[in-house]
Design a protein around this nucleic acid. Structure first.
Length: 370
DNA sequence: TAATCTTGCTTCTAGAACGG
DNA sequence: CCGTTCTAGAAGCAAGATTA
């Protein structure tokens, strides 16, 4: 079979032990990938992690098809060429959104336009997954004896014996790892927030947005809620945190509970205690999923000419709290459920928007709890 | 040597096309 | 209009190096 007739794709399975597989053009799973993904599952990795890693390996294997190199034959040279390709390639996901390299985003929110290529973070993600995959293959004996992906730090970990007599190599970015720009939390200015809220079409969406901005919940954390996760008297909701997967109670604003009450009373009769709190508006009434919620916000964006994302609501809450002088940064950390204070710090000293309007200290955050 | 900064890895969110 | 599919990218954390 010729190389240009071959291809791979990632498909979801019904198998809890292996939620995603990479199959070839005949639909047969690639054994080495399946083996590796099973290892991730066994190591208690989240299904979303398994999915993400499968897609990263997919692009690597497609690259090898073009290069006409077997996965177990590769050396550092192919990894270098892969990175060079990613650095210079046009990202197909960006092409239509940014047709002539024009500034397509951010006219009202001050967000920066994106480059037409792949982000440094994407290249680093690919490298991390690739290194992990070849590390696993080396242990099982299926892959090359030397990991083709250089390890952390300068030079090649595989070629360097770390003698305790020699000075430790300084911690610098490893070969091929890209510099990543500093991340800036984004807040929605009050006037824009109210405009967005007015544009919402249902009590469900008003409740969701009000809860997102007052609890600082991540989208999937909110979508995972059941009826038992609302403490009406204590004005709290229970969320399953990212990473830790621990349930935690989080304070919410009175108005968000008012909207939630209206949604439940009018649109959710007979809700079971353990039933999903959020359902799709149309039949069949399935639990609302992340992409469906995001589509709701995209429709609002289209109507108002905005470029908001769901995570902006979390940032908005964090920045409102962090810029209130009466609230200690450790309380901000607690409300955002950050494990480390370093994760909360970037929220401080940020302004209401990135357009340079002043920080309105003293004006109470209208929709943020506490 | 305590505080701060960098890096790499894991986990989740974002962008765009498409479908009913 | 409301939602799904297929990739891309940001967020959060811990460990180790660096700086104060």
């Amino acid at each position: 079979m010729k190389a240009d007739q071959r291809t791979y794709e990632v498909v979801a399975t019904a198998d809890q032990g292996l939620p995603f597989v990479m199959v070839d053009e005949t639909g047969v799973p690639v054994a080495v990938i399946a083996d590796y993904l099973r290892e991730l599952v066994a190591s208690d990795c989240s299904p979303l992690t398994v999915r993400s890693y499968a897609f990263d390996l997919l692009t690597w294997f497609r690259f090898l098809l073009v290069e006409e190199v077997d996965w177990e034959q590769v050396t550092r040279t192919q990894v270098r060429d892969y990175v060079l390709m990613l650095r210079s390639a046009v990202n197909p996901q960006r092409r239509s959104a940014n047709p002539e390299g024009q500034v397509g985003r951010g006219s009202r929110t001050g967000k920066h336009p994106r480059s037409p290529g792949y982000a440094p973070a994407t290249i680093n993600h690919r490298l991390a997954v690739l290194a992990s995959f070849y590390d696993f293959s080396k242990r099982t004996g299926a892959g090359p004896l030397v990991n083709p992906v250089p390890g952390p730090g300068p030079g090649d970990r595989n070629m360097r014996h770390q003698s305790p007599l020699e000075p430790r190599t300084p911690s610098r970015r490893g070969s091929y790892r890209q510099k990543t720009p500093e991340l800036v939390p984004r807040a929605i200015p009050d006037d824009l927030y109210h405009e967005v809220f007015e544009a919402l079409a249902s009590d469900r969406d008003r409740a969701i947005v009000a809860l997102l901005v007052s609890s600082a919940a991540r989208a999937t954390e909110l979508l995972g809620m059941t009826a038992t996760d609302v403490d009406w008297g204590g004005q709290r909701i229970r969320l399953i945190g990212k990473g830790t997967r621990q349930p935690e109670w989080v304070a919410v604003s009175p108005d968000s509970l008012m909207w939630l009450g209206r949604y439940l009373a009018r649109e959710r009769p007979g809700l079971e205690p353990n039933g999903a709190l959020w359902l799709t508006l149309r039949r069949p009434h399935r639990p609302l999923k992340y992409q469906a919620l995001r589509a709701m916000l995209l429709r609002v964006n289209a109507k108002l000419g905005l470029d908001l994302v769901l995570h902006d609501f979390r940032h908005t809450c964090g920045i409102r709290l962090a810029n209130d002088p009466s609230i200690p940064i450790t309380d901000v950390q607690a409300h955002l459920r950050h494990r480390t204070l370093a994760s909360s710090e970037p929220y401080r000293a940020r302004r209401w928007s990135s357009r340079g309007r002043g920080c309105r200290r003293g004006s109470a955050p209208p929709a943020c709890a506490r």
